[in-house]
Nucleic acid binder design. Structure first.
Lengths: 148, 148
DNA sequence: CTAGTTGCAAAGAGTTTGCATGGCG
DNA sequence: CGCCATGCAAACTCTTTGCAACTAG
């Protein structure tokens, strides 16, 4: 487990820096590419894909598939705590990434492994849905619609 | 809400019949196309896409985006089954998409909603991991590696 | 007859891959 | 110096669109 995948290059640094500086939002390859070009440090699209792929494998970045036409979204994962032991909730509305520390989720993983023979990978698994803050206004709006 | 979009054609019937007969599984456009061709009632890809799009708009069919390379998955929605949601397991190794009908998963959703205020969307949520079939040979291979 | 439908093929978008060059170590 | 990294462009896959012929009503 040495620097198996780490060659210190300008491109790698640029990508990594961009991801860490935008850890609060999910970004597409296109976004990254455009940004780096504007910064005067352009990186080839293929290179971005290749790095992102590795980062996902390493669990440093998460990949989301929202829509075919939009393309994949990526988001840096802060390696602060043991991220491999908990799951993540992703709000489809505001894009917020929530850390879920929940024994129930772990039990689910155990259950699925025991009963369904499937070993869940918490690093890549993300629960999509609507967060509390986004749900509140949405519910209010729906009431109006219902009565309209 | 009259027959705004209903012209009774052979193609439409074929697609609809296929979807209702496979309501228990998720299917791709490719799957549908192949099947219909084999049945001697081929339907153009574009037509399948167009019908599926309408069906999704009407809420009769659900669309899942799991992976960019896999393409979209569709599933017919039975009215009385709408609350009978299920989840998906995606094997990272063989790419297989597994249908998970598990009460435990539903309980997890309830729990997360009640305790964490987050409404999970089963439509978008996919559990990534390794399936049973892929895990077996992988474990064997790892033993060799470990001893090597 | 009119308007929605179909199918082919071309266009698009996102992602991957091949290969020669370049740079880290 | 060896090997990974990079970048360009071509290849690929899935999906959408244009358009002329077709068909349900």
């Amino acid at each position: 487990m040495s620097g198996t995948s780490g060659y210190k290059t300008r491109q790698r640094e640029s990508i990594l820096r961009y991801m860490t500086e935008h850890k609060d939002s999910h970004v597409t390859v296109n976004t990254i590419s455009d940004y780096l070009s504007q910064q005067g440090t352009p990186v080839g699209t293929a290179t971005i894909y290749r790095h992102l792929e590795k980062l996902v494998e390493q669990g440093m970045v998460r990949k989301y598939m929202v829509d075919a036409s939009t393309g994949a979204c990526f988001q840096f994962v802060t390696p602060d705590r043991q991220c491999h032991e908990h799951y993540h909730l992703k709000c489809e509305r505001c894009g917020k990434l929530i850390h879920l520390e929940c024994h129930f989720a772990k039990e689910l993983a155990n259950h699925i492994y025991a009963e369904h023979g499937f070993a869940i990978d918490p690093l890549r698994t993300v629960f999509y849905g609507i967060c509390q803050e986004c749900a509140a206004p949405a519910a209010a709006a729906e009431e109006e619609t219902t009565h309209g």
